[in-house]
Amino acid sequence: MSKPIHSNYLPYLLVWFALIVLTGITVTFAGINFGKYTVLTALVIASIKAYLVLSIFMNIKREDKVFKIFIGISLLFLIISFALLFSDYSFV
C-alpha cells in the first residue's frame, strides 16, 4: 500500500476564516471613499484572497516547484496583456 496521507483539516478552516474576514473588510472599505485608491484596495484584498485559495485550498504549497513556475508564467502573460492594453488606452 502507498503510505496514507494524513491530511490536517485545520489549515483549511483557518484559510476559510481569513477569507470571510477579508470579505468583511473589503465590503466595509467599499463604503468608504478613498478616491482613486478604492479600486486598488479592492484588488489588493481580492489578490490576497486568491493567493490564499491558490496556496492552501489548491495545495500549491505542497506541489513541485514546476507548478509554481507555470502559474508565475501564466500570470506574467496576463499582466503583459494588461500592461500593453493600457499603454494604448491611458493616452487616449
Binding site: P4, H6, S7, Y12
Partner: peptide
C-alpha cells in the same frame, strides 16, 4: 472549504 475538506477526508 467543504470541497477542500472533502478531499482531505478521503485522503484520511
Amino acid at each position: 472549504l467543504t470541497m477542500a475538506l472533502a478531499i482531505a477526508a478521503l485522503q484520511n
